[in-house]
Amino acid sequence: MFRRLKKLTKNERGSQLIEFIAVFPMVILAMMFIWQMALVAYTVVVSESAARDGARAAAVDGNAAEVAKTSAGNLELESVNTEDNGEEVTVTVVVKVPTVSIPLVGQIDYTLDADATIPKEEEIED
């Protein structure tokens, strides 16, 4: 009986499967974290571009909010604010960051704001 028990304790069959099962959830969480960081980076780039495009439109008396919304693509805009001080136009875009639902953490509600300032275009009279 003791020989059989000793033989079973030295048997390493199946150890790779147990190690894989132990590490697999950490690999999935790492992949979800990397995907979330990619979504944040994408949101930063697109929101800055939307603010810049909105400021360009506002500099020539265009509709900054509509241009920023079009430029943001499929991102959800919380707000678009335009400030005009006579010489410069500043557009601030607030964007909701898309998130990955992480188990035990859930959805994270996070917004990001980007702004752009451009000199106002002067009208040329004929």
Rank of each mutant, 00 (worst) to 15 (best):
E19M: 14
A58F: 05
A58V: 05
A68C: 10
T43N: 01
L39P: 02
N74Q: 13
T43D: 01
A57G: 11
A22D: 05
A72L: 13
A41F: 09
P25E: 06
A38L: 11
V80W: 04
A72V: 08
K69E: 13
L17N: 03
S79P: 14
M32R: 01
V27F: 12
E19D: 11
Q36I: 05
R52V: 02
V40S: 04
E78R: 14
V46K: 08
A72Q: 07
A64W: 09
G73A: 12
S79F: 10
E48S: 13
G14N: 06
G73Y: 12
G54Q: 07
V27E: 01
S49P: 03
Y42N: 09
S79K: 12
A57M: 08
I28K: 01
A65N: 14
T82R: 15
E66L: 14
I18G: 03
E19C: 06
A59E: 06
V60C: 06
L75R: 02
A68V: 08
Q16W: 07
L29V: 09
V23L: 14
M37D: 00
V27C: 11
N81P: 04
A22E: 02
D53E: 15
L29Q: 03
S15C: 05
Y42V: 01
L77Y: 07
S47D: 03
V60A: 11
F33A: 15
V80H: 12
S71F: 04
L77G: 05
I34D: 00
V60I: 15
R52S: 08
P25T: 08
L39S: 02
G73M: 13
E48M: 07
F24A: 15
R56F: 08
M37R: 00
A59D: 05
M37L: 15
I34A: 14
G73Q: 09
A58C: 03
L29G: 07
S79T: 15
G14F: 04
D53Q: 12
E76S: 15
I34C: 08
K69I: 03
I18L: 14
T43H: 00
E78H: 10
G73L: 14
V45G: 02
N74R: 13
R52G: 02
E76A: 15
E76L: 14
G62Q: 12
A38W: 01
M31A: 14
I18W: 03
G62R: 09
V80G: 09
E66N: 11
A65L: 06
P25Y: 09
